[in-house]
């Protein structure tokens, strides 16, 4: 009669079963397709690393990868520089002023990316808002051709990525205990020193998480570079879409995707590490 094995019910075992369905779904429709992409990069059109030789053999594809990383880097740095003071201000104000400021961030985050990119096209085009303003203000004589161009891509991408930098930063800054700053000031630090020695180091996890997030998302960004960048500022996702959807070169598209996947995954791992050390969950993005 003695129950020899732990045959009984456990509170946790019940919950474990719940994982089966979502994991099957994610496995079948996420992990499996991605595995196939990697596989295909070595087998299409023939077995071998020919696709990778094309990617890394110099020429246009390597340049696209370089532009992708460079753009992601520039966008990340710009976002960090812009978002830090903004997050600092938002984290210090209270009540309805804070709600108002957050409303701007959230409305921006929620607006369709396609629509926002469209709006930037309107702004940057030859007869667009910016050129009309520049001509009217006598800064330039003739409208400048911003499209397609690097400036437009950067402005558009920073605009879309900024909330993803702001939110993790804010989450971290809000948890910083203000009495620590007061303590530093009591001990003789002036506000600048207190900021530099206490607040800034404590806010670094937010900066780290936001930067990883923005860099990661920028690497795979499609809409803005496709609309505003043109062939001279082509990024990886645009090239992959073109190769697969229009030129039907799936082998090359798969190889490019695998490289992009590797890049993004490594940043993702850094991001997870940062989030873990910051003790928080995932950034509550869009």
């Amino acid at each position: 009669m003695a129950s020899d094995k732990s045959t009984g019910w456990t509170a946790t075992a019940f919950y474990r079963w719940l994982l089966v369905a979502p994991l099957a779904f994610v496995g079948l429709f996420f992990l499996w397709p991605i595995l196939n992409v990697i596989l295909r990069s070595f087998t299409d059109p023939s077995l071998g690393v020919a696709n990778y030789e094309r990617v890394f053999g110099g020429g246009p594809y390597l340049k696209v990868l370089w532009i992708t990383v460079e753009t992601a880097g520039i966008v990340t740095i710009l976002c960090a520089l812009i978002a830090y003071p903004v997050a600092y201000v938002i984290s210090r104000v209270r009540g309805s002023m804070m709600s108002l400021m957050m409303a701007f961030v959230v409305v921006s985050l929620w607006t369709s990316v396609v629509i926002r990119s469209y709006a930037w096209m309107v702004v940057f085009q030859r007869k667009g808002v910016l050129n009309q303003f520049l001509v009217a203000a006598d800064i330039v004589e003739r409208p400048i051709s911003f499209l397609p161009g690097t400036l437009a891509v950067n402005v558009g991408m920073v605009h879309i990525m900024l909330p993803f930098m702001l939110l993790p930063m804010l989450a971290t800054m809000r948890t910083i205990d203000r009495t620590l700053i007061s303590a530093a000031e009591v001990m003789g630090a002036n506000p600048f020193v207190a900021f530099r020695k206490v607040f800034f180091p404590l806010s670094l996890p937010g900066l780290g998480a936001g930067s990883a997030l923005v860099f990661m998302m920028s690497l795979g960004f499609f809409i803005t570079p496709a609309l505003l960048g043109g062939p001279r500022h082509m990024m990886a996702a645009v090239l992959i879409e073109q190769q697969a959807n229009r030129l039907l070169d799936w082998g090359l598209a798969s190889a490019l995707s695998t490289v992009l996947l590797l890049l993004t995954t490594s940043i993702y791992l850094v991001y997870l590490r940062v989030m873990k050390s910051a003790g928080g969950g995932f950034a509550h993005g869009r």
Partner: peptide
């Protein structure tokens, strides 16, 4: 009953509830 024992009996008025 949150974590059943690996082995042994838990009896309430003589009725084993371990599982």
């Amino acid at each position: 009953g949150f974590t059943p024992p690996t082995r042994g009996r838990i009896e309430v008025d003589g009725v084993d509830m371990a599982a």
